[in-house]
């Protein structure tokens, strides 16, 4: 019994069908608990006021935005090396989830930045890296949509994911370099504030992070199932067309 057994689409579907209901419930409970706790039951920060409540959305979604790309990188590698279809389809299924997480992170960040920094957007390294990450997601999704043959699409998007990862990391360092070059001596206080605070904020934040993580896993499993079904439909239709 090894993990590779679940590279078989039928086994994967059977397992995910068994796991998903519990996963949905657990993810929903965690997200709901974390967010309700964070929204209703946390005090205001003495410096940030009530905007501190935004981190319960911002940090988990940012975390998942990066983890989603990392997961796509791993599944792309598995597809390129071992050619398990489930792996390629899981990467395809994860991309829109990651893109939405990136948008949530950017939107909540902008909404927090407006009162705190006095601007919706600053070309701060972190913000800029996330915007670039979003562009990578867009390109990746667009490439999946554009290619007709599913196996070629899986191949090419995997290569794009690998090369894109390298360039995403490069961009991150380039952006750090670039902004230091622009604003010598000034820094935008990203790392300060709520991130190092007491348990009052930390516990609901951890619950939210677990919840977003579980939600991501559930969504990817669910969407991978959809992709497997689409693939099988296509195969059946192709066989039917050949037979007729």
């Amino acid at each position: 019994m090894s993990l590779w057994e679940y590279a078989n689409p039928v086994k994967f579907l059977r397992l995910s069908e068994r796991v998903l209901p519990a996963l949905w419930v657990f993810a929903g409970l965690c997200v709901a608990t974390g967010l309700i706790w964070g929204f209703f039951a946390t005090p205001d920060d003495y410096r940030q006021g009530s905007t501190v409540k935004i981190i319960f959305l911002h940090v988990p979604s940012a975390l998942m935005a990066i983890n989603a790309w990392f997961m796509m990188l791993v599944t792309s590698l598995i597809w390129l090396i071992r050619r398990h279809h489930v792996s390629a389809l899981a990467a395809k299924a994860a991309a829109p989830v990651g893109a939405v997480m990136t948008v949530i992170a950017l939107a909540t960040g902008a909404l927090w930045g407006q009162p705190m920094w006095g601007t919706w957007w600053a070309w701060d390294p972190r913000l800029t890296s996330f915007l670039i990450l979003f562009l990578f997601y867009l390109g990746y999704i667009a490439l999946w949509e554009a290619i007709e043959d599913p196996d070629t699409a899986a191949d090419l998007t995997s290569v794009l994911c690998l090369v894109g990862s390298v360039f995403a990391v490069l961009s991150r360092y380039a952006v750090h370099f670039w902004n230091q070059g622009l604003h010598q001596g000034t820094s935008v206080p990203v790392a300060t504030g709520a991130r190092t605070v007491s348990d009052v904020f930390f516990i609901p934040l951890v619950i939210c992070m677990i919840g977003f993580g579980m939600l991501f896993v559930a969504l990817v499993l669910y969407r991978t199932g959809t992709e497997i079904r689409l693939r099988r439909t296509r195969a059946l239709l192709a066989r039917g067309a050949r037979g007729a």
Binding site: F167, A174, W178
Partner: peptide, 14 residues
């Protein structure tokens, strides 16, 4: 263009 432009980011920056 959509694929290549994000890859151009580091080159453009430096």
């Amino acid at each position: 263009s959509l694929l290549v432009l994000p890859l151009y980011v580091p080159t453009l920056i430096f």
